[in-house]
Design a protein around this nucleic acid. Structure first.
Lengths: 132, 132
DNA sequence: GTGATTATGATAATCGATTCTCATGTCATG
DNA sequence: CATGACATGAGAATCGATTATCATAATCAC
């Protein structure tokens, strides 16, 4: 008897550990495509990467980072509070440690703030090099 | 002779003024659907609203506000620097005046920041009311 | 091992947002 | 009022991201 046949399975993908390692080693939020590329030799398929990262998000191991007009990125769920930088040139997303003073207090009277996101944009060091 | 036949025309839509008025009156960034709804009686079509707002963005009259997993919103281009609040319940986007201290300075050494966005999330006053 | 169960990958389907197409409407101008 | 130039709306097409399908492969329980 099978429950939940064609939805996300519990968690027993043989790729889970490798995918978590890739995300962790990247040191920045990575997309499904980036994960798949990093594991190219393993032959893992896109669908599987999606399944695994979704599982991991559900299981509290990964956090989904959503940006405007971009595929979702994934990062370890246990990182301390931080924000992100998106490079206008290569589109890679980087971590920005720390947070600005009094961000949540910006909200006008009557708004209940449950979370906030700060997104910096510009050019990453690598792309600055490249353009010299 | 026609140049640019089926792309954006110069700016002579008969709806331009009304659309700009809707955006301005809203007092918060509005989506194409919201604009269309506001002008429902006029019978304006979605395509036209897209054409007009795109023109206005190009012409420097409107600014496009892009959020994760949401249709673009549009606001007057001449507003002073500010940020946004997205209600988790009704999905409406509101303006948040002002800015936090030292936001751009958060970037690690070597990153060149050209702009930043702060997005607050939570519940707007209206939706708090509704849930009481 | 053997049969049942479940994961995988290729690819089709879906989804929401946006843009394109094109027949028709509008409007200015001669 | 004829003409041409262009704007409009309905709906089709597209786009990128993600999810669903399903035959097959891997794995598990015994």
């Amino acid at each position: 008897m099978r429950i939940d046949y064609h939805n996300h399975m519990a968690q027993r993908s043989r790729y889970t550990d490798e995918i978590l390692r890739v995300v962790s080693d990247a040191g920045r939020p990575v997309s499904v495509d980036e994960i798949r590329d990093a594991l190219r030799e393993s032959g893992v398929g896109t669908a599987t990467v999606y399944r695994v990262v979704n599982n991991c998000v559900e299981g509290g191991k990964l956090k989904k980072v959503e940006l405007p007009n971009a595929a979702a990125r994934f990062e370890p769920a246990d990182l301390p509070h931080h924000h992100h930088f998106e490079c206008d040139s290569c589109r890679k997303v980087y971590d920005v440690p720390g947070c600005a003073q009094g961000v949540a207090d910006l909200a006008p009277e009557g708004f209940e703030v449950s979370q906030h996101e700060i997104l910096l944009k510009g050019t990453c060091p690598e792309c600055q090099e490249a353009s010299v």
